[in-house]
């Protein structure tokens, strides 16, 4: 069921997931579009998540009329680090998310989304580990999943093992660190993925809906959607504010129509549909890279869970089984 409406306020809105935002020209969503988008969200009973522009300046102010419209409804703000939006409501929301492509020394929001390529993550592992004690929820998103090779599996395992040590130390101090790659799986009893097109939908500045911002970026960058070789098209929209939502093959976005994922228990996996389409060419099928990384994280979470239980009772209702594979594709015949 649709629960969230992500509104990209500008073409330069901060990238907050696997896909980089290649759009550099400012293109603010027209105020009338914004109003219609909010109205759509209200009528569909959706929580609005605004993604703020990255103009590269500190504490910029949107035009006054935008600030008023934005705050006309309860919302979550996703904004680039150092560019905290000024809308007249200064306290912000507990669920606001600060996004950055650099490991920060301090975090202003309660939620940090850190976007890094794999190599940079390895290089800055100690700086990242320092953030675990900050009391801020850390979401780390790897931006070059498609480049991940089987030759890096051991390095990733080792990195997560090191971070497990840091997290375990914090648990022993009575703290409750939150780090998506390692602590989420310990809390989950079912899949908790991105759910683009299922629980959330994105409204772009052009007034059209997309499964997620990445599909809008692809359309704008004229990435061919492979649908029709007679009339090459990059159109990725799934409806607009006039016609409403019109998602073709919506069932293929759901977990029950993803043969690998519905049998999987790497519940913390992002299950990124955009990466699926990019790498396997089918939106319901994850790539080897996505599965392997998610399973390394899952197995490391299992290890962290077990280590915590050596200290005392910890999440007794959670059971993460031992498995001997890192890609469920290898064992698909046993499903």
């Amino acid at each position: 069921m649709l629960q969230y409406l992500v509104i990209l306020l500008d073409d330069t809105s901060a990238a907050y997931c696997h896909a980089d935002n290649p759009l550099k020209e400012r293109n603010l969503m027209p105020i009338e579009t914004l109003k219609k988008g909010i109205l759509f969200g209200m009528k569909q009973n959706l929580m609005i998540q605004y993604v703020f522009p990255d103009y590269g300046t500190r504490d910029y102010e949107l035009p006054k009329e935008y600030a008023e419209v934005i705050e006309s409804i309860d919302n979550v703000k996703i904004y680039p680090a150092g560019c905290k939006p000024v809308t007249g409501i200064e306290d912000g929301n507990e669920t606001d998310v600060e996004v950055t492509n650099e490991v920060p020394e301090k975090v202003e929001a309660k939620n940090l989304l850190l976007r890094l390529p794999f190599s940079k993550m390895l290089k800055q592992k100690d700086e990242i580990a320092k953030l675990f004690a900050s009391g801020v929820r850390i979401n780390l998103c790897i931006t070059d999943v498609e480049q991940f090779t089987d030759g890096q599996i051991e390095a990733y395992k080792q990195l997560l093992e090191e971070w497990n040590g840091v997290l375990l130390g914090l648990y022993k101090q009575g703290l409750s660190p939150q780090f998506n790659l390692l602590t989420d799986r310990m809390m989950l009893k079912e899949m908790h993925n991105c759910e683009a097109g299922v629980s959330n939908i994105t409204l772009a500045p052009n007034g059209k809906f997309y499964l997620c911002p990445a599909f809008y970026y692809d359309e704008r960058m004229k990435v061919f959607n492979q649908l029709n070789h007679h009339q090459p098209s990059s159109d990725n929209s799934v409806g607009d504010l006039e016609r409403g939502l019109d998602i073709p093959n919506p069932q293929l976005l759901r977990l029950d129509h993803a043969p690998l994922c519905r049998n999987c228990d790497a519940y913390q996996c992002r299950r990124c549909l955009w990466l699926n389409r990019k790498l396997t060419w089918d939106i319901n099928t994850p790539s080897h890279q996505q599965c392997v990384m998610a399973h390394i994280e899952r197995n490391a979470s299992r290890s962290l869970l077990n280590d915590n239980r050596k200290v005392g009772e910890f999440m007794p209702e959670i059971d993460i089984k031992e498995i001997n594979y890192v890609d469920p594709f290898e064992v698909r015949k046993e499903f």
Partner: peptide, 27 residues
């Protein structure tokens, strides 16, 4: 194919991109 782009899974020099086979093998 009438309407769609060819579903190329690789070529004889670079071999098969196994990611592009995964949908077929999980059907």
């Amino acid at each position: 194919l009438r309407d769609k782009e060819a579903w190329i899974i690789g070529n004889i020099k670079d071999g098969i991109d196994k990611n592009r086979l995964r949908p077929f093998l999980t059907l």
